[in-house]
């Protein structure tokens, strides 16, 4: 019984939260890694693209709610998602035309594009705050739980309850669908293959008649879509706050780099690795330990390895350790 309780506690406080957080990081990192692969730079504006897109989703959600449109047991934000993606994709494409394209034509050094993306980051940051403010916003509605802790306790007779929030379930499900669709697109469609070809060898892609502007545009649209989905899922799971999204940049970059920049598979692996280590290191293991260990060995304190405030430190430490042993990341990225 104690063992079962321990497993339930572990699922409840580590596995489920880490999986949904990992899915959110993976989606974010996929966007970063795609831009890196095709446009050859790390997009510092990605966190703010997520923030902007989520803000748009929130606005549309509010509009739906105000006219009484709901999505049954699911969050209304899901209905708003396509609109948010469309608006964000339009903004990102406009940014590309107005800003990035010039440097592409100049064959500018990628590091210049990184600095350019800093400027875009400032602007997007300002625009998002301008539109929706800096406060914390919760916008999840619909059913709260797939599995409720009390009902679970009653049904199983265990002391430990299992709570599986619908936003977490939704996050994991959406992430699986999105990732599957992305991989199908990249590996099976003509456009997807042309993107991989362009990422592999730009000149040869040009000589094969692949239109670079089209590749770049499709990449931006996909990256915007991934950013808005990741941002909305994160916001549903936790809450929306513009500055938090900016700060997600570090774990997202860390995920993409740990996995191997430019490798979509790596971005997913990196996202989950970072999420599980962050949650694992900052979870207070006392509960699990008391169930599993004999009383004499039970810990006195919280058995928390690090305070949650140090979760960035964990992502960073994992990053350094992986790079020390595998300089190009887990899945051989485009480095070196």
């Amino acid at each position: 019984m104690d063992f079962l309780n321990a497993i339930v506690a572990l699922l409840n406080f580590v596995v489920i939260p880490a999986t949904s957080y990992g899915a959110q990081l993976a989606l974010g990192a996929l966007g970063v890694t795609l831009i890196y692969g095709i446009l050859r730079f790390s997009n510092f504006a990605h966190g703010d693209t997520m923030a902007f897109g989520t803000a748009m989703v929130i606005l549309v959600t509010w509009a739906f709610q105000s006219v009484g449109i709901h999505f049954g047991p699911l969050p209304t934000a899901l209905l708003a998602l396509p609109f948010g993606i469309a608006i964000t994709a339009a903004l990102v494409l406009a940014t590309d035309k107005a800003v990035y394209r010039f440097y592409r034509r100049q064959k500018a050094a990628p590091v210049i594009l990184v600095i350019v993306s800093m400027g875009v980051m400032f602007i997007m940051n300002g625009v998002t705050r301008f539109i929706i403010g800096v406060g914390e916003i919760r916008f999840d509605d619909g059913g709260r739980f797939i599995v409720n802790a009390n009902e679970f306790k009653k049904a199983t007779g265990l002391a430990e309850g299992l709570a599986f929030r619908s936003t977490q379930g939704l996050t994991i499900l959406t992430a699986i669908i999105v990732v599957a669709a992305l991989f199908w697109f990249l590996n099976k469609t003509r456009t997807g293959k042309s993107m991989r070809a362009y990422s592999d060898n730009e000149d040869l892609a040009l000589l094969s008649g692949i239109n670079p502007e089209r590749v770049v545009a499709v990449t931006w649209i996909i990256a915007a879509g991934l950013a808005v989905i990741a941002g909305t899922l994160y916001g549903l799971d936790k809450s929306f706050k513009a500055f938090n999204y900016f700060q997600l940049l570090l774990p997202i970059f860390a995920s993409a780099i740990v996995g191997g920049l430019g490798s979509p598979l790596g971005a997913i692996a990196g996202g989950f690795l970072i999420a599980f280590t962050e949650v694992g290191f900052t979870y207070a293991w006392k509960k699990v330990a008391t169930y599993v260990l004999p009383d004499a060995l039970a810990p006195d304190g919280l058995a928390q390895l690090l305070s949650t405030d140090y979760k960035f430190a964990v992502s960073f430490a994992i990053l350094v350790i992986v790079l020390l042993f595998k300089p190009t990341g887990l899945f051989k990225g485009k480095a070196v």
């Binding site: 590091v111 594009l113 730009e202 892609a205 070196v336």
Partner: peptide, 24 residues
């Protein structure tokens, strides 16, 4: 625009871009 000041940071930039001009 091409001056990278010798930066070779692999965590933010991908080397080996194309040399061909775009068909414009």
């Amino acid at each position: 625009y091409k001056d990278d000041r010798g930066n070779k940071d692999r965590s933010i930039t991908k080397s080996g871009g194309g040399e061909l001009e775009y068909p414009t």
